[in-house]
Design a binder for these strands. Structure first.
Lengths: 338, 338
DNA sequence: ATATGCTATGTAAGCGCTTACATGGAATTA
DNA sequence: TAATTCCATGTAAGCGCTTACATAGCATAT
């Protein structure tokens, strides 16, 4: 919007030009209420002639709807982010909603005010840990439309969430490593435990081991942090301590990359000396040397569904509380399959 | 915003609670006008107590400012996109501006209405070809704040733009290939000529050749399309026609990847039989086999500067018309250097 | 003591829409 | 023909802010 420049075309100009009332123009623009074809035609002509664009602010003020949804993420960057945003953007556009995005990364998460909320959006998609629990609870309490992405609700609250089958994906990966590849000493490179994706992947790993009666060995659990550098460092350290395994299962592909780098520095051959597998299937995975066996997560699809759910909630429709999307094993050479 | 739920706290509630007028509350909230410390304290207390959040819509309507900037891009995805968005988001937040983003990819670009414009933002960052010229011209004519990113203004219009030294970067790369590596037959994998980055990189290539008195050979110019698949196909085709070169300079890293794949399929060794270099330095570049020599573009920085410029324009301050950011050669093995 | 200028604050008029309600005419029914 | 219904449209009251202007104190200058 511009400071002044009073050349603004308002609904009144359109009404006057078309020879109808502002109410009629509003009805035509919003396709609400009944309007004769004749009147509608005049209104459309006027809109065209005057190049009228409704003021989002005035609309919002009068209707108590912003026609916008917000996306809250913790960090831009991470391979995760791109397909997610693409999915959200596409669906938002499809639903004629503006998309506001804000990252809480770097800012002190504990401190309001949050840039996105009731005052400037009709609903929010909250990714992982991008919002502290109190704010989540507050928004929920005032009945503000919320959909969680890649996380579940705080205990006791019920709000729709959509995420991927992390546990199942991890379990299938481990099953594959044990049953098809014959490994028994499987190390796990953990992610931040506050991140639910990381949490469930670890649980899946543990469950699969238990199911095969393989005891959990704490020396096989190393810190990955969903981060290449950190995984690199902790893998190097682990090797230095004389520890080893037949295969390292990294909780995400980034940490798999770090692990691979550390292994190579130690002159270990992948997968002959030690295999490596990851989770996510980022673009890089296929280009690594050797190409990385991993679990593919339908990130874009999850994002799309989240928007659909949110739009439904905003419209007051019912939605399912939990949507879990299947993951898929992607077998490449790093697991020693070929 | 929520449909009804009349529990909304307005500026009047705050004024009443604090025992002042709404004007005073407004002054405090906006830090505009003079207010006694005493009154300000009462207002802050009231805001805190009532958990007041100003309505963005009402503010916008009354002040003719949305406090939001828009980002228009053509496609989400592309390695380009992530650092760009991160830079924009960070600077928007720093300037207390909401960020609206919309991709025009897929939609019919020739057809209004555009989701972002005068009615819902205070200014727009327009990336490359995300907006047709007419709309650019229209916005410029009504004096709407605009900053172009990775493109220059339509002929005759002057609006601030920020982009990277594509021509210079390409020239330096070619100079390096000729002077340091001794190549003379340098093929070029073009990008879409409507994309300015592609255009200038090609010019830089041509100028460098001319400067070394190497004639342009049309059989050395192949279509890359800034796209892995297309580059792959056209490189394969080029080889099939019996053509060759000492090195392929791809206008972006994605097409370099495609070219490398095609060369490998043809059993050519990189860089022994033919070298490959790219442009952008995407994350993948360092992981390719062999690692890709390329030109690094400061994408995030360009994005940050664009926002700074835009904010200045919105505030009515002067800004420089053209900002050109330097690029940097990144030498890795694919060029045959080591 | 009076005039003058400041400063802090209040009053109230919009901003450009949406929408509940009112209205009048045409169509339907008795 | 009169009564009833229904549909298209208009009237006007907000929505929650900002801000130009008015005003009342008070300090300073005369």
């Amino acid at each position: 919007m511009q400071p002044d420049e009073s050349g603004r075309i308002t609904i009144m100009d359109v009404a006057e030009y078309a020879g109808v009332s502002t109410a009629t123009v509003s009805r035509v623009v919003n396709k609400s209420g009944r309007v004769s074809d004749e009147a509608a035609a005049k209104v459309y002509a006027a809109i065209e002639a005057l190049n009228y664009k409704p003021s989002a602010a005035a609309r919002g003020l009068a209707s108590h709807r912003t026609n916008a949804i917000g996306l809250l993420i913790d960090e831009i960057g991470g391979e995760f982010f791109q397909p997610m945003l693409r999915g959200i953007e596409i669906m938002a556009r499809e639903n004629r909603m503006d998309l506001l995005i804000s990252s809480t990364g770097g800012m002190d998460k504990a401190s309001p005010p949050y840039p996105l909320g009731e005052n400037n959006t009709d609903g929010l998609i909250v990714f992982a840990n991008s919002l502290p629990q109190e704010e989540l609870v507050r928004l929920h309490k005032i009945g503000f439309p919320l959909v969680l992405l890649h996380r579940s609700p705080p205990f006791g609250l019920d709000m729709p969430c959509v995420t991927v089958e992390n546990k199942e994906g991890a379990r299938r990966m481990v099953n594959y490593l044990i049953e098809q590849r014959g490994y028994r000493r499987i190390a796990f490179l953990t992610g931040p435990s506050s991140h639910e994706d990381a949490y469930w992947r670890k649980i899946g790993y543990q469950e699969a081991l238990s199911a095969h009666a393989i005891p959990l060995d704490p020396t096989l659990m190393l810190w990955g942090g969903f981060d290449e550098q950190q995984a690199h460092a902790s893998t190097a350290n682990w090797l230095k301590n004389g520890l080893n395994a037949e295969v390292i299962f990294a909780a995400d592909d980034d940490s798999a990359i770090g692990a691979m780098a550390a292994l190579k520095e130690a002159r270990l051959r992948i997968p002959e000396d030690i295999a490596v597998v990851g989770f996510d299937d980022i673009r890089l995975a296929a280009y690594l040397d050797p190409p990385l066996t991993t679990v593919r997560a339908p990130i874009e699809q999850a994002a799309r569904i989240a928007v659909e759910q949110l739009v439904k909630v905003i419209r007051g429709e019912e939605v399912e509380t939990m949507t879990l999307l299947p993951t898929e094993l992607v077998i490449r050479r790093s697991c020693g399959c070929c």
